[in-house]
Structures are given as C-alpha cells and as structure tokens.
Design a binder for these strands. Structure first.
Lengths: 148, 148
DNA sequence: ATAAACTCCTATTAATTCGATAGGATTTAT
DNA sequence: ATAAATCCTATCGAATTAATAGGAGTTTAT
C-alpha cells in the first residue's frame, strides 16, 4: 500500500494540475481542499520541489505551481521519491540495487528472475500512469456518469 | 519492497519444493540452509500451515511439508498473507476494501480508476509467478549458464 | 519601513510496524 | 520415560511513519 506521503503527493499534484498553469497556490489551500495536515503537506511539496516537479514563489501571494507538464509527471517517479525502490527485491532494483545477503548465485536464482520480470512490468505500468492520464480519466468518468 | 517475512516464506517454499514430496523437513534445516533465524522462520511456517499451503508432523522426525502443488502456490497469495493487500490504495482492494477518507465521489475518481487498473494487472502478474515457475526458471538458467 | 503572508528548514514526538527472541505447552517416535 | 520436534503466546528493541512545533528567511502590499 502507498504511504500517506505518496498518496497526498498525488492528491496535491492532481489538484495543482486542475488549476491554471503558472498560478501559485498556497499550501493551506491545498491542505484544506484535500484534507491533509498543513505541516505534513509542507514537507511533501518541498520534496516535490527539490525533485524538480514543482516550483514555488515565496512571500505574500506566494505558493506552489507545477514545473513539469502533467503528462510528464508519472506515478513511478512520485513513488520512487517517497517510497524508495519499486522493485520488490533489492537485487532487481535498478536505482537501489543491493545484493541479497545469502544468494549463492544471482545469475541462476529463479526468485530473482521472476521478480526482475515483475519489476519491469510494474515500472512500465506505473510510468504510463501520469497525472494527465488521471485527469483524462476523471473527465471521461464524469461524462459517463452524467449520461446515466 | 517485500518484508523479510515474505521473502523468507518464498525461500522456504522453494526449498521445500526442491525436496521429496511428502517428506517432513525440520525448521532448523531450512533455517540453516537459507540463513534465517530459526524462531522467526517458525512463525512464518506456522502461518503458511494455517493458510493451508503447508502441513506439518509433530514430534520426533517431524517437520513441514508442502500440502499444495508448487504450481498452485503463487506469489500473490503469499504476499497477501504476509503483507496484506496488493492494491496500492485501500479503495481498490478486493479483499481489504476501505473507502478513502475524503474521496468526494469514488465512481468518478481518476486516481482510483488508475490504481484499480494497476491493481488488476499486478495481481495477474503475481498469480502467474508460482513456486513451480521459479523452479522451472532456475533449471533453465542453470542449463544456460553451464553451456557458457 | 514595516507588518503580513508566505515558503524553507530542522528537530522532536507519538504511534505503528518489523524483525527477532524467549519460554513453555504439546505431540510423537523410539 | 525421554528426546526431539512443532505449537502458541508474549515481549522487546529498532526502525519507520505520520504528524507537530517553532522559527528563519523571503516577498509584497500598504
């Protein structure tokens, strides 16, 4: 399961993507709308900023705004930022590789082989899931529900 | 990432599947071979027994043995047993469903829609990954390495 | 200039989960 | 009987997660 940090990050990104591009939005507005602790969200937005996803404007009328296009922000990257590796085993992670303590031979390990495949498919899937993709689905679903 | 519990469970299952069917193998033998704390492994095997994957024989010359076929034991079920839901959000879990605290409308939530798809594909993938599948891969890999 | 309204940053805390350990009860082959 | 195994419950320390606190720094309206 996703940690609350990751979930809140996605909520905030979707919220920002729904607003006007370039317009700075204050932490407290997002926190209120999405029911997130303001101080907790503060740390999350800061991390997204340091990762280059968001940018911010300080001072009065300041706030956060998207730096990347919603179509370029994907769940895989957001998850890596807040949860660490997507791979289920350290020995199949690209960015956080670590040898399994007592693996006799990595090249012939069936477990590793299976989990390597799982990792690859999962990453592909999570990369396809962008913020833009989420917005598009929301629109489709809303239209579909109205015509019911 | 998988917890050590889940990882150890898979290691133990592969170990048991490599041995003779029906033969009871002691916890300490598995623990030694796979470098797992004996007491910790005890709890893991007990859980697998209660889940109907393993069975055991008490007393002298006792131990654990597979109750299910290696081709019927899949990673999805093992993960559910030790990690809980496979879904990344509670609102898209089948077996552990929970409403998201502040979701205005579940039927039009784009986030939910995306993560529902991710869940389905992930479950399919993890169900295909059986213990038998791991053994098969190991054999293939070993043959391939020898001919190098 | 100054005060208000923001972000930025570090530290702390409370609660939960994870990995491991301890010890005795129960069962069974010899 | 006894030795060797599983069964079961309880506990503990460490790590992680979620949240809070407080103030330093920055910008802007007035």
């Amino acid at each position: 399961m996703l940690s609350k940090k990751t979930k809140y990050a996605i909520n905030a990104l979707v919220y920002l993507a729904k607003g006007k591009r370039g317009e700075a939005i204050q932490i407290s507005r997002i926190a209120e709308s999405e029911h997130i602790s303001r101080k907790f969200l503060e740390a999350i937005l800061l991390a997204l900023k340091n990762a280059g996803v968001l940018s911010s404007k300080k001072g009065m009328a300041g706030g956060y705004y998207l730096l990347m296009e919603p179509s370029e922000i994907n769940i895989a990257d957001v998850m890596r930022l807040f949860e660490g590796p997507i791979a289920l085993l350290p020995c199949v992670s690209h960015k956080y590789y670590e040898k399994c303590e007592e693996c006799k031979d990595e090249t012939t390990c069936g477990i590793r082989n299976v989990f390597a495949e799982i990792r690859n498919e999962t990453v592909n899937q999570l990369k396809k899931a962008t913020i833009q993709n989420i917005l598009d689905r929301e629109n489709i679903l809303e239209v579909a529900m109205k015509s019911k």
